[in-house]
Nucleic acid binder design. Structure first.
Lengths: 347, 347
DNA sequence: GTGAAAGCGCTAACAC
DNA sequence: GTGTTAGCGCTTTCAC
């Protein structure tokens, strides 16, 4: 089609060019470059040398067509610039890189819009050997599509019906955070929970709320509806929640449990601005151990999305390598990290 | 190879299956599903219906092999979890998504290690139709590889010799930030500059330093070597720089110009911890307009990596669509955003 | 240990 | 408008 450039040696040099130059057949070149057995050391060396000189790189389309494998796995994410997801992507990439797979990124871009394209149409199917879906709210329709995909699939960070998933025990992690506050002596604890749109399948926020309520009830503490704030996991929503909480007349909580570090930091920044001292006047605890948490001194329950995604990816790849049953659910560790935003309540 | 599942209809249904079921040739199916002309409305409808029922999706390997296009572009990034890069990736994705291209992510993962694999080996070549490289330090060896790639290429956020690139005018942006400080009345201004490993090709830090020195000199202000701190664009390095600055005996600056928001925030967090008030005792200005900048009240020179990458991607795709000369350098806008971390120096 | 040849599933001329 | 027919560049039996 396009004229082949001969100089230098990149562009369209095919296996046939290498075979010709090395005086062997394409079959032998194929074996040699892939490191397969049944090639004599001498020919192998010769071929590799010629291939290198010519700048030969196998066409992924051609080998994909021949083998039925694309050597790339898809990563589905609702955002890439939020902490959890960007870390998870990095983790997945580490494993893929190490095992010579490519990573194809599918960004769903929040709710609504033209999301469905991904699932039904040209994208996902037939381009990837396996799919890693990162924690997010899925519509039932999207779920259905996912279910009928016949490639290895695993989800990280959120429970999706009937799919293998990896993530922390959100109930336990949240309980730990709330218990930390109670042990410090707090009785008036506010809740800043995450998104909970009911038409979407996304358990994480629900579970964290539930844990909060259970632990509070278990400790004989009251939860006040007016201290139950809502956020969407962003810093901004944390700021707004703080403002609403403090604008409201009546008593103030001495502590606040935030369902994510980004929201917790929003609360902290806004508290500072309002002259509310953390932790003297208000204790704040989050979940995640965000990159900024240490710098801010945020007490939190840490998790490692990169390691979760790395493990999930490993399972996917193992399954592709023939290890049936390699893909399976697992619970990832979490850990309370006490820093400087929690303290006993003012006396 | 694997047995074809007939039920439901996903998996390996080929164009031939659709052709047979619709009673037409594969060529017609090909035209129909791609929305090409020269297909009667009736047959087209019939084919689309059959294809839908069978769950037909074209094999990207096969069409890639036939057309020589993979319909995916590669995005090369040194990190994915840092603000600039994650935003840029989102921007690139928007354009790619809109134009039905896939995004293949290549994470170089910092310096050293096994980076070179990407350039020389199986990855980049032959798997993508164009390459978007995100601002980073490249070794001369890597540059050389890039140079000889014969696919459309553009870099975002940093100047790379002989390549089209899109990014802000770093000199002007830095000058703006420093001038803002000077106009506020500051004379004792410290510099927190970024990485500057000399074996790598990465102009951004150098240019920002240069601008700082030029503007200071232009205003007749002295720059002190002991107020020249170094960081690597992370929050942590900003914290450490502040600590070093304040631990040193002698006079303290009244303002600090940071080459990135993340470092600026590190300075702010650490200053708060040390009881140094911002902006009363110390003014801080950054560059970027990071997601957290507004919440923290950080004065900064904003830029939009997502829009830069989106534009760059558009150029790449236009070039692939036959618009020769579509890929060309462009300078992206920046804007001073005055918030609450800068004020006149203490009198 | 090596080669010949038959595909993999699609696209693109070119006929009709 | 639609069908026929070559490939695209690789992998993979199966002979030798």
């Amino acid at each position: 089609m396009a004229e082949r450039s001969q100089r230098g040696g990149h562009s369209g040099v095919s296996i046939e060019d290498v075979a010709a130059a090395a005086g062997v057949s394409t079959a032998t070149v194929s074996r040699a470059v892939r490191g397969l057995p049944r090639v004599s050391p001498a020919t192998r060396e010769k071929i590799l040398e010629v291939a290198g000189a010519l700048g030969y790189v196998a066409s992924s389309s051609a080998s994909g067509l021949a083998t039925g494998r694309t050597k790339t796995i898809g990563v589905l994410a609702p955002f890439v610039s939020r902490w959890f997801f960007s870390k998870a992507i990095e983790g997945a990439d580490r494993e893929l890189h190490a095992r010579h797979y490519n990573l194809s990124l599918f960004n769903l871009g929040g709710h609504g819009s033209n999301r469905e394209r991904l699932f039904s149409k040209t994208m996902v199917y037939k381009q990837i050997d396996a799919l890693l879906v990162l924690c997010m709210a899925l519509t039932t329709d999207e779920l259905e599509h996912l279910q009928k995909i016949d490639i290895p699939l695993i989800v990280v960070g959120g429970h999706v019906e009937e799919c293998a998933y990896i993530g922390i025990d959100d109930y336990a992690a949240s309980s730990t955070a709330v218990r930390h506050l109670i042990e410090l002596g707090h009785r008036d604890i506010a809740l800043l929970h995450g998104d909970d749109e009911t038409d979407l399948n996304f358990d994480v926020p629900r579970v964290r709320i539930l844990a909060f309520k259970d632990v509070m009830a278990g400790a004989g503490l009251a939860t006040r509806p007016e201290w139950d704030e809502w956020g969407d996991f962003t810093v901004r929503s944390g700021q707004e929640a703080f403002r609403r909480l403090w604008a409201r007349p009546g008593p103030k909580p001495t502590a606040i449990f935030c369902a994510s570090d980004e929201m917790a930091m929003g609360v902290i920044f806004e508290a500072a601005r309002a002259g509310v001292r953390v932790p003297e006047d208000l204790s704040v605890v989050g979940i995640d151990d965000h990159d900024f948490a240490d710098a801010v001194g945020l007490t939190t329950v840490g998790q490692r999305p990169d390691e979760q995604a790395e493990l999930a990816t490993k399972m996917l790849l193992d399954e592709l390598d023939g290890m049936v049953g390699a893909v399976q659910s697992a619970v990832a560790p979490h850990e309370l990290i006490v820093r400087r935003t929690t303290a006993p309540p003012p006396s």
